[in-house]
Amino acid sequence: MKIVHCSDLHLGKKVSGNREYVKKRYEDFFSAFENFIAKVKEINPDVCIIAGDIFDKKEISPDILSKTENLFKELRSYVKKEVIAIEGNHDNSKALEDSWLEYLHEQSLLKVFYFNKNFEEENYLKIEDINFYPIGYPGFMIDEALKKLSKKLNSDEKNIVIVHTGISAGENTLPGLVSTSILDLFKDKAIYVAGGHIHSFSTYPKEKPFFFVPGSLEFSNVQNEKSDRKGFILFDTDSLEHEFIELEHRKRVQKNFIYNDSTNIEAEFEAFVKELNLTGEEILVISIGIKNNEYINLENLENIAENNGALKTHILIKNILSIGNSEEGTSDLSIEELEKNLISDWNISNIEKFSASFSELKELFSNNDRDSFLELFDKTLEVNEDDN
């Protein structure tokens, strides 16, 4: 059986910026899904797995739903047996509510499964000799959910687990991530664990992997995603071989800029950008080392880049604040990292949780999503007060 596995489509995502940039980025996520569907047509797989975050938000516009429904009609026609989808944290419904994924399910365009709705009793599907266990997004219940499931699996059968999670490691502090010790419970019980949530391709373990995260089809967080490779995974349940298939997506250009004279930085920066020969379609991510805490007008630099062919420019600052114990004493700081350093001085009990919520609060505020903003704001205050 041939299976294609993608995740984190984030259809309907709206970013901040000028009108042209907002429109193009809105279309980018649909275009990336179209590119995926074109490859699926070539492969004609038996099963398509979508491991969460089909939509970027729980509430969607008619335009988003219409575009999505049409694309799924096309996708369904190229998949022989079934399109299996799970809820992710972005399209996660409340316990007593249905998400828009349920509408797609009712149109027979996919089968959708949720963690918070009869997970243990209903999240199972058998196709030929393969047992599928679509978990959904367990969030902070991830360890408990996977432990329970691992005890149920028969190692003599071919089992595939689908869960909206990635591996918790290093600086990755997203909620709902899983440790490798929990994943190891499935080493001899599942031929494939289909993950998501993390937007870059990864596998575990290094030799003979059984846990796979394809990453997002398009950049959702342009500044912080590590890999420029975007695509999906093709898996053969007979040979147990996998292949990561790359897809076209919005181009990101990452560069370091070193200036000689702060009084002439704008001229130096313009010459630097012109050498990149940008076409007006690239997103530019620039790291700049600031010398002696000099003031630099970043907005002017962004305007210069966009007047010289960048669709959008993000500037990351180096050496403004010190993070960690790097021997060289340098690090590239995103806006989120700068905020975390500032928040650390606010006498907040759980900085990691609060700073993660702070970034989402900003996004909700910029999108005028008042209800979600107030709901998350209340939860953030509760986390700070209770420290849990």
Results as ranks from 00 to 15, higher is better:
residue 285 V to D: 04
residue 107 Q to V: 13
residue 287 S to M: 05
residue 89 N to I: 15
residue 1 M to E: 07
residue 12 G to E: 00
residue 356 A to Y: 12
residue 345 D to S: 15
residue 325 N to E: 15
residue 42 E to I: 15
residue 65 L to Y: 11
residue 333 L to Q: 00
residue 305 A to T: 15
residue 333 L to T: 01
residue 278 L to G: 07
residue 351 I to P: 06
residue 263 T to Y: 14
residue 289 G to S: 04
residue 219 F to P: 02
residue 262 S to C: 08
residue 131 N to L: 13
residue 180 T to F: 03
residue 363 E to Y: 01
residue 175 P to I: 01
residue 42 E to P: 10
residue 35 N to R: 09
residue 255 K to Q: 14
residue 172 N to F: 08
residue 18 N to C: 09
residue 150 S to D: 10
residue 184 D to P: 01
residue 65 L to E: 11
residue 137 Y to F: 11
residue 59 E to R: 00
residue 193 V to D: 14
residue 336 E to S: 14
residue 24 K to V: 01
residue 6 C to F: 07
residue 257 F to N: 15
residue 64 I to G: 06
residue 202 S to V: 13
residue 64 I to C: 12
residue 188 D to P: 06
residue 175 P to M: 00
residue 173 T to Y: 09
residue 68 T to L: 10
residue 172 N to S: 11
residue 66 S to M: 05
residue 94 K to L: 11
residue 68 T to Q: 10
residue 67 K to C: 15
residue 61 S to W: 02
residue 329 G to C: 05
residue 213 V to D: 05
residue 318 K to H: 08
residue 105 H to S: 04
residue 172 N to K: 11
residue 37 I to F: 10
residue 218 E to S: 15
residue 176 G to I: 01
residue 13 K to R: 09
residue 362 K to I: 14
residue 320 I to E: 06
residue 337 E to P: 06
residue 98 D to W: 05
residue 212 F to R: 09
residue 290 I to R: 01
residue 340 K to E: 07
residue 236 D to W: 07
residue 1 M to R: 12
residue 89 N to W: 11
residue 6 C to I: 05
residue 104 L to C: 04
residue 239 S to R: 13
residue 370 R to V: 10
residue 181 S to D: 13
residue 62 P to T: 03
residue 156 D to F: 00
residue 384 N to W: 12
residue 151 K to E: 15
residue 76 R to I: 03
residue 145 A to F: 11
residue 362 K to F: 08
residue 116 N to H: 12
residue 378 D to G: 13
residue 28 D to F: 02
residue 132 F to Q: 14
residue 251 K to Y: 03
residue 188 D to M: 03
residue 354 F to Q: 11
residue 69 E to S: 12
residue 236 D to V: 04
residue 108 S to E: 10
residue 100 W to A: 03
residue 5 H to G: 06
residue 107 Q to N: 09
residue 208 K to Y: 10
residue 141 M to E: 03
residue 7 S to F: 11
residue 31 S to V: 08
